[in-house]
Design a protein around this nucleic acid. Sequence first.
DNA 1: ACAGTATATATGGATAATCGTATATGTAAA
DNA 2: TTTACATATACGATTATCCATATATACTGT
Lengths: 114, 114
Amino acid sequence: MNPVQFYKCLSDETRLRCLMLIQHEQELCVCELTEALQEVQPKISRHLGQLRQCELLLDRRQGQWIYYRINPDLPEWAKQVLGDTLAGNPDFLAQNLKCLQRMGDRPTRMQACC
Amino acid sequence: MNPVQFYKCLSDETRLRCLMLIQHEQELCVCELTEALQEVQPKISRHLGQLRQCELLLDRRQGQWIYYRINPDLPEWAKQVLGDTLAGNPDFLAQNLKCLQRMGDRPTRMQACC
DNA sequence: ACAGTATATATGGATAATCGTATATGTAAA
DNA sequence: TTTACATATACGATTATCCATATATACTGT
């Protein structure tokens, strides 16, 4: 993981909020992020695609929904950076989390059973 | 310190190398960074100016030279990010440190005496 | 005061990033 | 197989970022 590329991913407001929200909630689907950020779907989707292509995020499909999560194989320093950023900026997501909690009809997760 | 602005600062190769070199060496002047990165002086100076304006770096003049250092008043999470990045990417600066060590006539620091 | 060195800024042009809109793909349920 | 919903991609336009070059500023030593 090239650190410059890594930080380019974090340097956009939409992407950073998505990453922090996912870090906070473990896993979120596109429609939840769209609601939390109050943005149009293609914008969210485009940024998520970029984060997936850079291997910061992994996705899985469950029915109609696609859930994104932090790639657990990120190098340790990168995971620490994400963790430090979330912990050090408690207000950053406040509004987004409020929108998320207000959201009705959130898709119900099924644990991938094994 | 707005995290998006912070990461915008880290998302350029020249700026990230300058920051990491300064973090590694405590303090460096413009001509040392110019040599370490093998770049032209206005390019280095422009990026340092940006980092100073965003308050990631502080500068002090000593004679003809201007030394840059990490702003000690950065929020803890930001300092941790810089530290994690340096520690987690030992090869990132290898070539730059080699150039720095090869540099002749490095300006001699005077400790600000008190 | 003048010459030399270090650093900063200004300017115009090139490149890259981002966006809004329209549309395509994929899944589910009737 | 048709409709509805979730997500992804394509396209053109706008904006932001970065660069090279030229030049300005500031300090040092003569």
